[in-house]
Design a protein around this nucleic acid. Structure first.
Lengths: 219, 219
DNA sequence: GGATGTGAATGCATTCACAGCA
DNA sequence: TGCTGTGAATGCATTCACATCC
């Protein structure tokens, strides 16, 4: 419950937080009660100093001579990341990728629930997908307001991504996970994370061609 | 065709290369012949200095007073990234996400082609998915050798990811795009890119809770 | 002894700023 | 004038190393 000052926290540290949480949950499943910065770091490919420094940005969670309490860290990390409560998420794009997102089992346990699906295609509207009725884009604003949705997954073709994103933002969405291969230009108040699978493969292509670099670096 | 020394190139610069290429292709579709570092940077949220510095790591592509020739840059960037030739890619995991990857139209044009699909599920083996026959994991080694495959997309449940990844590496795979929510521990010669969609949403969650940071930063 | 937490030191990446070319 | 290419300067992030505590 510390007064986090995000401007003092390196962005990379925030990204690593998610991995710490994921790994802590794995340690918990293995029955470990405490974990040292070295153990945690090794399991993720970070140094122990890195782990300790990152933790220190958010508070004092460890016990000297002992390590970090697994259970408590999970609670803390969830709180910091804001996933100790469940987020309602909306999905735009009921194609193959949209279906995969909807079917993904991993969201619930991490604090996310897709509660609405939208598509522009008249043939899809009204049909059901994993128990959710596919809605027309005209219903966007009403649904976002009614269920106070702040996060959206954008799985539409590149040509429509920018336009849909703008509508989402106007309707109150504050964070977008974008799968379309375009750079979205949005107001700074909106957080955007883009995943372009072709870009991911290009990176691999480069590193396979020039193996000197990148000691198994995980994005 | 310069002698690229990857050890002299900042990793972040390599990541941006893909975005430069993507954007250049967009400029090309708009019919532009040349683009300045400022135009390119603005369109991606980078500074002009950043763009010029990045380019300079790989050669001298621009013309003072004019900018960068779009067509030629596309050729160059593809060559640097190694996507001027098509990579054969294999897919492990014929679930929803696997299906989405297989159906994705964006791969071909960027130099990737999924040529084989594998799954552990007996019920799926032998069935077809987008014209590819789903193969058992026992066929992994033979197929990789026969089609000289170097890249793989891993879309299997978390529990099996590590094990399958090890097999892929032993069979000669040199780059893995991993969608399973685990950190893979592999030899340094293997390039790994991981996409954990829950982690992506967690990042958004954090930034929505603490909007001070991140001026619409795109991962 | 074994581990954390953290200022100080180091190492990278970005940005500046300007010489030089079209 | 307009823009690139690049050393030099700055600014961040990581790592070191050690005081501190169980």
């Amino acid at each position: 419950m510390e007064p986090i000052r995000p401007d003092l926290v390196p962005n990379p540290a925030v990204r690593r937080l998610s991995f710490y949480l994921r790994q802590m949950e794995s340690f918990q499943r293995k029955g470990l009660a405490t974990v040292s910065s070295k153990q945690l770091g090794d399991s993720l490919g970070f140094t122990d100093a890195q782990v300790r420094k990152d933790m220190s940005y958010f508070g004092q969670f460890g016990h000297p001579g002992v390590g970090y309490p697994v259970e408590e860290m999970i609670t803390q990390l969830r709180h910091i990341l804001g996933t100790d409560k469940t987020w309602n998420v909306l999905l735009v794009g009921a194609g193959n990728l949209g279906r995969a997102m909807l079917a993904y089992r991993g969201f619930d346990v991490r604090g996310f629930r897709i509660v609405a699906v939208f598509d522009a295609d008249r043939n899809k509207i009204g049909k059901k997908m994993a128990s959710l009725m596919i809605q027309p884009l005209t219903a966007l604003e009403k649904t976002i307001a009614a269920q106070s949705i702040r996060l959206a997954i954008l799985a539409v073709p590149a040509e429509h991504a920018e336009e849909v994103a703008n509508r989402l933002v106007e309707a109150g969405i504050r964070g977008i996970l974008n799968f379309a291969p375009v750079t979205l230009t949005l107001p700074p108040k909106v957080a955007v994370n883009s995943v372009d699978v072709a870009v991911q493969l290009e990176q691999l292509s480069f590193h396979v061609n020039f193996p000197a670099l990148e000691p198994s670096g995980q994005s």
